[in-house]
Each structure stands twice: as C-alpha cells, then as structure tokens.
C-alpha cells in the first residue's frame, strides 16, 4: 500500500536526522562510535592474525614502526589486540543491552499497565535488583556460571535492567491514563494489543535513550569484571588487556603503551554512548527540545 506511508516514514526520519545534525553532542558521539565500530569490524580483516599468538616480537617493546603500539609482556602486538578487543567489548555492550532492554521494557510495561498486585510483585522484584550491591552479585554470578563471554553478557544483562523497568513503568502509568488508551479500550482492544501497539511505541523513545546509556554501563562492567580477573581468558577484550597490564606491572615499569590504549578506548566508547544517549533524549523528548 503504501508508497505514501513509506514517504511519511522517510519524512519523519529526515526530520530526525535534521534535528540530529544540529546536535553537536550527538554528532560527536556518532563519529567516535562509528570509528570504533568500523575499526573493530574491519580492523581484524585488514590485519588477519591470532591476537592470542605470543612471541611475534620481544616482550614489552615500546611503540616502533613494526609494532605501532608496542608489545605486551608476552610479546603480543598491542594494536592488533586492541582491534580484536574492541570487537569483544562492543559485542558485550550491544548484546547485554539487548537483554537488559527486553527485560526492562517488558517488566516495566506489564507492571505499569496492570497495576495492583502485578505491579507490587514486579516492582519489589525490580527493587531487589536495583538495591543489591551490583559488584558482589556479578562476582558471585560470574564465579558460579564460569567466565565465558556469554556468561558475562548474561550477567550484565540481567543486572542492569532494573532502572529501565522503573522508568518505563512510570511512563506507562502516565500513558495508560491518557484518553486515547481509553478510546482504544472502548473500541474493544484487549490488553495485549494495547500494550504492544499503543503503549510500546509511546515509551520507545524513552527506552531507546535510556538503553544507549546502558550500553555504556555494560562496557564498563565488562571492563571491570575482566580487570578483576573474571573475564573470558580466551578472548582479548579491553578489560582483559587492562587486567594483563596491571598484572604484569606495566604501570609501575612505565610501559604506558600497554595500559593507556585500552583505557582510552574504553573511555572514548563509553563517552560516545553517553553523548548519543543524551542527544537522543533531547531529540526524541520534545519537552527538552528547544524551539
């Protein structure tokens, strides 16, 4: 049907991009993030290698023309490790966020929409995840489940949805009182239809902005876990690199090329996600948008 419909969508998208273009924070975030995504997707293709292979060069070599970021204590190329680590870190960020977004949105909408007992039970459950000290829980879970990358994603996803659920619930509470929901109920729509077709699209901008911030948290979490030695030893993430650097005493020996690059990368990626989060919030939330 609908070339017109498609055109409408196109128009909306265009409007969004026009707004986005004017948002300096958003542009900066998008630029940094796309750089890292491109680098970690194509980097390992351009420099095919096994990042875990040691002895490509001598240990702890400072940056040189053959190894632009030097080597680590086992003689691995840091630049190549960085590229491969970016893949892992970004993947953890994205997948953990998807889990967290799904859990948070579902629980938030169901809780807010049905209210009463459902709300009380689900919200106490949410409070539980909101107040338990995050790090010890993650440590315990990671220790029990083992340190594969999938477990780390799972653990981060399952511990970070509570905030989203709270925000979504409060938004749902206000949306479900809006007259249009009542009108749709008067038409004869059931609860599922109302939640999926009407409440979800209306909370989505909020979820989206909130979720991007969670990606940043997820990447930091992965770094923290790995740094504490609970990372996946078979995959070189930025966190693992920092962990190795710390263990080999790079900081005290002045091997800045070992710990600085992964550190800077984590900071930049997290910053880019945060920038994007704020930018989307500003664009999608008309109350914040300046005329």
């Amino acid at each position: 049907m609908s070339s017109i419909k498609r055109e409408m969508r196109k128009k909306k998208l265009q409007e969004f991009f026009n707004n986005f273009k004017q948002n300096k924070m958003g542009i900066t975030g998008a630029a940094i993030l796309s750089f890292f995504i491109l680098a970690s997707v194509f980097g390992p293709m351009i420099f095919p290698f096994d990042p875990m292979e040691f002895g490509v060069a001598g240990p702890m070599e400072p940056p040189s023309s053959s190894h632009i970021l030097g080597t680590d204590d086992l003689g691995r190329d840091i630049f190549r490790n960085l590229l491969a680590g970016g893949r892992v870190s970004l993947m953890v960020g994205v997948l953990a966020t998807v889990i967290s977004m799904f859990l948070g949105t579902t629980i938030g909408i169901v809780s807010g929409y049905f209210g009463k007992k459902t709300d009380i039970i689900l919200m106490r459950f949410t409070d539980f995840f909101l107040v338990i000290p995050w790090l010890p829980l993650v440590l315990v879970l990671a220790a029990i489940l083992g340190t594969s990358i999938w477990n780390i994603i799972f653990v981060i996803g399952i511990t970070s949805w509570a905030g989203t659920a709270r925000v979504v619930r409060s938004q749902t509470l206000s949306i479900k009182e809006r007259p249009f929901v009542e009108r749709i109920r008067a038409i004869g729509a059931d609860d599922k239809t109302i939640m999926i077709r009407h409440i979800l699209p209306n909370v989505f901008p909020l979820v989206f902005a909130n979720t991007i911030l969670i990606s940043a948290v997820a990447i930091i979490s992965e770094t923290t876990l790995s740094f504490l030695g609970l990372g996946d030893t078979t995959r070189p993430s930025w966190g693992m690199m920092l962990n190795y650097a710390f263990e080999s005493g790079a900081a005290s020996t002045g091997a800045y090329w070992y710990f600085l690059p992964p550190g800077i990368c984590v900071v930049l990626v997290v910053l880019s996600f945060t920038f994007l989060g704020y930018a989307f919030d500003e664009i999608l939330n008309p109350k914040l948008r300046r005329r």
Binding site: K5, P179, F180, E182, R183, A186, I187, G188, P201, N202
Partner: peptide, 21 residues
C-alpha cells in the same frame, strides 16, 4: 456489545494515539 456501542471522547487532542497514522 462493544462492536455495536461506541464512545466519542471529550478531548480530541488526547484521544488519538500520537504515534498512529
């Protein structure tokens, strides 16, 4: 019954889903 009995609401600014065409 809902099929045959409908309602028109007071506030036309609020009674349509802002995200629906």
């Amino acid at each position: 019954f809902r099929h045959k009995a409908q309602m028109i609401f007071q506030d036309p600014y609020q009674s349509l889903d802002p995200k629906s065409l």
